[in-house]
Design a binder for these strands. Structure first.
Length: 607
DNA sequence: GGCTGCGAGACTCG
DNA sequence: TCACGAGTCTCGCAGCC
């Protein structure tokens, strides 16, 4: 039976009579930005009893929330939720911050069980609980928020979450992902909550300066493009801002761009699926030297910066000047986090040919600094660990430059180990002298091999012939024989088991009948492990920082191999040291990690 | 004629 | 066939009113 609770007396009576030490919980809110986020109602289920508390227009709202605060602090010992960071965030917003650390998120549980499918509650109820009909919020709320239809709707979420947790708990033990779930993933839910609550402060003046400068550049470049192509236009001033705009019946879409390029007697080996000239970066670099092409190259960069970032972010800034992205723990098949609205993981770097600094708009509040802690060469170090290749491990242990080392092997430069040590007196000169070879070692071999590239791919990337690329690959594997062994082992495992597992026991299921699967499988061993390393690091740092409230340290971003904090100025040095130490030893591995710390007033300065 | 939804192609990041 | 993992923008077309 579903109980509707409206008065404080009803709520008290319900929980006094029943055992809710372990229960499922779901909040119901109107989807708004963080500042306007409010709990409109919530439901609880303990395996027997279910209730929905309606807080909409409730005269006793404050006292009920105060009661719930007490309930979460003293009664509830274990809490089951679907998408835990969201519910935790809502509770936090209502002042309910003392919540048991013993949580169970059914969404993340399902992600560990079946990373390839979707993880929405309704879909999971259909799939695992054989529920036949499901009302949407819009359908249920038509009946009114006190109606049996709506109460059933709201209670079902808690009931389904409870039932799913029973199934998923068993399944995770069978699949041996239970330790990853309870020891890494669940503590990490609180970090996601922190990220979404904290957000990042934006300097609005700097943002406006950037907008004006970049818009002027875009205008200049666009006008030049039209002039070169001989397309007519007129100029019009905006009646409010006075900013001058180009008005033309001619568009500059991809089809038109291809047409103009052709009309200039140019062709490109890069084509779209439809057989037209591709007008992407590759073509523009290939045709470098043509005035239209070179102008278009710059125009694309500025246009992307403005249309995707500078002009979009103002709508996403909360009333306190901070932008709060949403982080998805189950959005990728490898275990990486993803971010959206805005995607903080794709904020543009400063382009070498243009002066616009987007990351400079993110800043620390008065009296605080931004600290960026970045794993240096994380994936390559993990390649060494995953493969167990002694040469690569030894290279890192002795502080050799791995990219120069690969360049040395592929091009036969004849450098000695001692010369390639970053601490050696000759190192800097050699790095400069063999910059090209080092660059090929890095971007032609080290990274592509983590991605499972072929000689064709390397040839396309570096411009050497396929035969030369194959010879390079052979030299790479002869230098690091353990890597070849590890890739073969991964391939055979996938053929036999139809899945692979990272060192943290995270699984990725792939079809061995597809050629692509073998590349994805090996890459997963590294990328998936890296994602859990960041989680572990966040968990440990969060615990440590909680011991020093006077530091006022807040986590504000995670960008795959980088964690960004804001910290009170007088504690920045000591906090950074602590963070560095914890991150470098977040996991017990045969090779230490290296973390680089950057400190600044803005995110850009800290990078 | 104008609106909406969708896929393609382009770009951003690690 | 050909390099791993993401999110978001604009364009251009199909379908609808």
């Amino acid at each position: 039976m579903n109980h509707l609770l409206v008065s404080l007396a009803d709520v008290r009576d319900f929980f006094d009579k029943r055992d809710f030490r372990v229960c499922a919980f779901d909040t119901e809110t109107t989807a708004l930005n963080y500042h306007e986020l409010r709990m409109m109602g919530c439901s609880f289920h303990n395996g027997e009893s279910t209730c929905y508390i309606n807080l909409r227009g409730n005269k006793e709202r404050d006292s009920i929330v105060a009661y719930l605060k007490h309930l979460f602090a003293y009664t509830i010992k274990s809490l089951v939720m679907h998408n835990a960071p969201f519910d935790l965030k809502v509770l936090h917003k209502e002042g309910i911050t003392d919540v048991t650390p013993s949580i169970f998120c059914t969404m993340t549980a399902h992600h560990l069980i079946d990373e390839n499918s979707s993880h929405g509650l309704k879909g999971l109820a259909l799939r695992y609980l054989k529920v036949d009909s499901i009302r949407t919020f819009a359908e249920a709320s038509k009946y009114g928020f006190d109606s049996p239809e709506f109460i059933e709707y709201a209670c079902n979420d808690a009931i389904w979450t409870w039932q799913l947790h029973k199934i998923f708990n068993k399944k995770m033990f069978e699949l041996e992902v239970n330790r990853l779930f309870f020891e890494v993933e669940m503590p990490f839910q609180f970090t996601i909550m922190d990220l979404e609550i904290n957000g990042v402060q934006v300097n609005l003046d700097k943002l406006e300066e950037l907008r004006i400068a970049a818009s002027a550049k875009r205008f200049e470049l666009k006008r030049k493009l039209y002039d070169i192509a001989g397309l007519g236009y007129t100029l019009q001033a905006d009646m409010f801002t006075g900013e001058v705009e180009m008005v033309s019946k001619h568009k500059l879409g991809n089809q038109q761009r291809a047409k103009i390029i052709k009309s200039r007697g140019l062709d490109s080996p890069y084509k779209t699926d439809g057989g037209e000239i591709s007008v992407g970066k590759e073509t523009l670099i290939h045709l470098k030297g043509d005035e239209f092409v070179d102008t278009l190259f710059l125009y694309n960069i500025v246009d992307k910066l403005l249309s995707s970032f500078v002009e979009k972010i103002p709508n996403m800034i909360d009333s306190d000047g901070r932008v709060r992205a949403s982080y998805n723990n189950t959005g990728t098949v490898t275990g990486r986090l993803s971010s959206s609205d805005p995607n903080m993981q794709q904020n543009p770097k400063v382009n070498p040919v243009l002066p616009f600094d987007f990351k400079g708009i993110f800043e620390a509040p008065e009296g605080k600094s931004i600290v960026s802690a970045d794993y240096a060469g994380q994936e390559l170090r993990l390649l060494a660990i995953v493969s167990g290749d002694e040469t690569l491990i030894d290279a890192f242990k002795q502080n050799l430059d791995p990219h120069l080392m690969t360049g040395n092997a592929v091009f036969g430069l004849g450098l000695t180990k001692d010369q390639m040590k970053r601490t050696s007196p000759e190192y800097h000169d050699l790095k400069e002298k063999y910059d090209h070879e080092r660059h090929i070692g890095k971007n032609g071999y080290n990274f592509p091999i983590i991605y499972g590239t072929t000689s064709y791919g390397i040839s396309k990337n570096t411009g050497v012939s396929e035969d030369e690329a194959q010879a390079g690959i052979d030299k790479f594997f002869n230098t690091y024989p353990g890597v070849r062994v590890a890739i073969n082992k991964c391939t055979n495992f996938l053929k036999k088991c139809w899945h692979v597992r990272s060192l943290t026991r995270r699984r990725r299921r792939l079809d061995p009948n597809e050629k692509k699967s073998f590349r994805q499988a090996f890459n997963f061993l590294i990328q998936g492990l890296a994602s859990d390393m960041i989680r572990r690091a966040c968990n440990l740092v969060r615990e440590e920082l909680s011991r020093y409230p006077e530091w006022e340290a807040k986590i504000i971003m995670i960008v795959h191999d980088e964690i960004v904090y804001e910290i009170k100025n007088e504690y920045v040095e000591i906090a950074s040291e602590k963070i560095k130490g914890i991150m470098e030893h977040a996991m017990d591995l045969p090779l230490d990690m290296e973390v680089e710390i950057g400190i600044g007033k803005t995110y850009s300065e800290a990078k």
